[in-house]
Measured scan of single mutants.
Amino acid sequence: NRRVIAMPSVRKYAREKGVDIRLVQGTGKNGRVLKEDIDAWLAG
Protein backbone atom coordinates (compact mmCIF):
# COMPACT_ATOMS: atom_id res chain seq x y z
CA ASN A 1 0.00 0.00 0.00
CA ARG A 2 2.42 2.64 -1.23
CA ARG A 3 1.80 6.33 -0.75
CA VAL A 4 1.04 8.18 -3.97
CA ILE A 5 3.00 11.38 -4.56
CA ALA A 6 0.87 13.95 -6.37
CA MET A 7 0.05 17.63 -6.07
CA PRO A 8 -3.40 18.40 -4.61
CA SER A 9 -4.50 19.83 -7.97
CA VAL A 10 -3.63 16.53 -9.67
CA ARG A 11 -5.51 14.55 -7.01
CA LYS A 12 -8.56 16.78 -7.59
CA TYR A 13 -8.24 16.35 -11.37
CA ALA A 14 -8.14 12.56 -10.96
CA ARG A 15 -11.22 12.65 -8.69
CA GLU A 16 -13.12 14.76 -11.21
CA LYS A 17 -12.27 12.28 -13.97
CA GLY A 18 -13.23 9.32 -11.78
CA VAL A 19 -9.71 7.89 -11.75
CA ASP A 20 -8.29 5.96 -8.78
CA ILE A 21 -4.93 7.72 -8.54
CA ARG A 22 -3.36 4.64 -6.89
CA LEU A 23 -3.67 2.78 -10.21
CA VAL A 24 -1.79 5.42 -12.22
CA GLN A 25 1.94 5.03 -12.82
CA GLY A 26 3.66 8.33 -12.09
CA THR A 27 6.31 9.58 -14.51
CA GLY A 28 7.44 12.67 -12.60
CA LYS A 29 10.37 13.01 -10.22
CA ASN A 30 10.36 10.25 -7.56
CA GLY A 31 7.35 8.66 -9.27
CA ARG A 32 5.15 11.72 -8.83
CA VAL A 33 1.83 11.45 -10.64
CA LEU A 34 1.37 14.29 -13.11
CA LYS A 35 -1.77 15.60 -14.84
CA GLU A 36 -0.38 14.12 -18.07
CA ASP A 37 -0.24 10.69 -16.38
CA ILE A 38 -3.96 10.92 -15.59
CA ASP A 39 -4.70 11.85 -19.22
CA ALA A 40 -2.52 8.99 -20.49
CA TRP A 41 -4.25 6.52 -18.15
CA LEU A 42 -7.66 7.66 -19.42
CA ALA A 43 -6.51 7.30 -23.03
CA GLY A 44 -5.51 3.71 -22.32
Rank of each mutant, 00 (worst) to 15 (best):
K17F: 08
L23W: 11
L34G: 06
I38H: 00
L42S: 05
I21W: 06
N1E: 15
R2F: 06
S9E: 13
K29I: 13
Y13H: 11
A6R: 03
L23G: 08
I5P: 06
V19P: 00
E36H: 13
V33H: 01
G44Y: 14
R11H: 11
A40M: 12
E16S: 13
S9N: 12
D37H: 02
N30T: 07
K17P: 00
I5R: 07
R22G: 08
N30W: 12
N1V: 15
V10W: 02
N1T: 15
P8M: 08
L42K: 06
A14T: 02
V4W: 03
R11F: 11
G26L: 02
I38P: 00
L23P: 02
K12N: 08
A43H: 11
V24S: 01
V33S: 01
M7E: 14
D20A: 05
V33G: 00
K29A: 12
G28P: 01
K17Q: 13
V10C: 06
V19S: 01
S9G: 13
G26Y: 02
R2H: 15
A6V: 07
R22I: 07
G31A: 07
K35C: 07
N1Y: 01
L23I: 11
G28L: 02
V24T: 03
S9H: 12
R11S: 05
R2Q: 12
Y13V: 07
R32K: 10
G26R: 03
L23H: 11
R15D: 10
I5Y: 04
G18W: 06
R11V: 09
Q25T: 14
M7P: 12
P8E: 10
R3P: 14
A40W: 10
I38Q: 00
V19Q: 01
E36T: 15
K29M: 11
A6H: 05
A40N: 14
R2I: 13
Q25L: 13
V33T: 05
Q25G: 09
D37W: 00
K35P: 06
E16A: 13
R22H: 10
V24M: 06
K29V: 12
N1Q: 14
D39T: 05
W41L: 07
P8H: 10
R3Q: 14
A6F: 02
N30R: 11
G18P: 00
L42C: 07
G18C: 10
P8W: 05
R11A: 05
G28W: 01
L34Q: 10
P8Q: 10
K17V: 13
L42V: 11
R22D: 07
V33I: 15
D37E: 01
V10K: 01
G26M: 02
G31R: 06
L23Y: 13
L23Q: 13
G31N: 09
G31S: 07
V4A: 08
L42G: 04
G28E: 03
I38K: 00
D39R: 04
A40T: 13
S9W: 08
K12W: 09
R11W: 14
A6E: 03
V10Q: 02
R11G: 03
I21G: 01
V19L: 06
E16Y: 10
E16M: 14
S9T: 10
D20Q: 06
G28F: 02
I5Q: 06
G18T: 04
K17N: 12
D20P: 09
P8N: 11
V33Q: 02
A6K: 03
N30D: 15
E36F: 09
G31Q: 08
D39Q: 05
A14M: 01
A40D: 12
G18N: 11
G28S: 04
L34E: 10
V10F: 01
V4R: 08
G44A: 15
R22L: 11
N1R: 15
D39N: 09
W41R: 04
I21A: 03
R15K: 15
A6P: 04
R3F: 04
Q25P: 14
V19R: 00
I38C: 02
A40S: 13
K17T: 07
K12I: 08
D39A: 04
K12R: 14
G44C: 07
L34V: 11
A40Y: 11
K12Y: 06
G26A: 07
T27N: 06
Q25D: 11
N1K: 15
R32M: 14
V33N: 00
I21L: 09
N30M: 12
R15L: 13
L42A: 07
A14V: 01
E16K: 12
V4M: 06
R32H: 10
D37P: 00
I21P: 03
P8Y: 05
K12P: 01
T27C: 05
K12Q: 13
V19A: 05
V10A: 06
I5N: 06
A43M: 13
A14H: 00
V10S: 03
N1I: 15
K12D: 11
I5G: 05
K35V: 10
E36R: 15
A43P: 05
M7D: 15
K35Q: 08
A14G: 03
W41M: 07
K17A: 09
D37Q: 01
G18I: 03
A43G: 11
R22W: 10
G28D: 03
G26D: 02
R15I: 13
G26T: 03
G18K: 09
Y13E: 07
V10G: 02
R3A: 10
I38G: 00
D39V: 05
R22A: 09
A14R: 00
V24P: 03
R2N: 14
N1L: 04
M7T: 15
D39H: 04
V19G: 00
P8K: 15
W41N: 03
K12F: 08
L42D: 04
K29R: 12
A43K: 14
W41P: 01
N1S: 15
I21T: 03
M7N: 15
I5E: 09
N30V: 06
R32S: 12
A40H: 12
G28K: 02
K12C: 12
V24E: 00
R15V: 13
G26F: 02
Q25F: 12
R3D: 13
D20R: 05
A40L: 14
T27L: 04
A6Y: 02
R22K: 10
V10H: 02
M7L: 15
W41K: 04
R15S: 12
R22E: 10
L23D: 10
I21D: 01
N1C: 08
E16T: 12
L34Y: 08
